[in-house]
């Protein structure tokens, strides 16, 4: 501890603006209430009492306007892809995307010869974290969220451009 901190009371802390901004952002990752296939069941379980995603400050919002994070949980068909893109565009920045499960990563079990399925959601929107699995267990999704939080902490907000 520096000499300055020793002279101040305990409830005063030092940090950098970047760290403070990133910390507040990573601690309130509101994700959009949205799932398209079987992975959605694991997402619900992750949000429910046993795994309790709220512990990480991640609660669901029923509108893209209030969401910071889109968890793409499930198969995206070409029909749905336009809608996913539009939902992503409706989210305010800064915004993040987790591709949950093989389908969202690569098309998964539908990769070969499917006429209707989009082969990976990164073809339409930028993805920050990929969580593998078919479906991933809630622990895996939580790990994905923690990885995203690490990524957010690395961000530099106040740099001269």
């Amino acid at each position: 501890m520096g000499a300055l901190e020793d002279r101040l009371p305990d409830n005063i802390l030092f940090t950098t603006v970047d760290k403070f901004l990133n910390w507040s952002q990573k601690s309130s990752l509101w994700y959009m209430l949205f799932a398209t296939a079987c992975c959605g069941i694991e997402l619900m379980q992750t949000g429910a009492s046993r795994y309790d995603l709220d512990r990480f400050g991640a609660v669901f919002r029923a509108t893209p306007r209030q969401s910071d994070l889109m968890i793409v949980a499930g198969t995206i068909t070409h029909m749905m892809a336009d809608r996913v893109k539009r939902l992503y565009d409706q989210m305010p920045s800064p915004k993040y995307v987790i591709a949950m499960g093989s389908c969202a990563n690569t098309g998964g079990p539908f990769y070969k010869d499917s006429y209707a399925v989009l082969k990976g959601v990164d073809r339409i929107i930028p993805v920050d974290v990929y969580v593998p699995g078919c479906p991933p267990r809630p622990e895996a999704l939580i790990e994905g969220i923690m990885k995203l939080q690490e990524k957010i902490m690395e961000k530099k907000n106040l740099v001269r451009k």
Partner: peptide, 16 residues
């Protein structure tokens, strides 16, 4: 599902 169907390379703005 027609046997002579040729899958398109692109649809709207993305590769299929």
């Amino acid at each position: 599902l027609r046997k002579d169907y040729v899958y398109p390379k692109r649809y709207h703005t993305w590769d299929v």
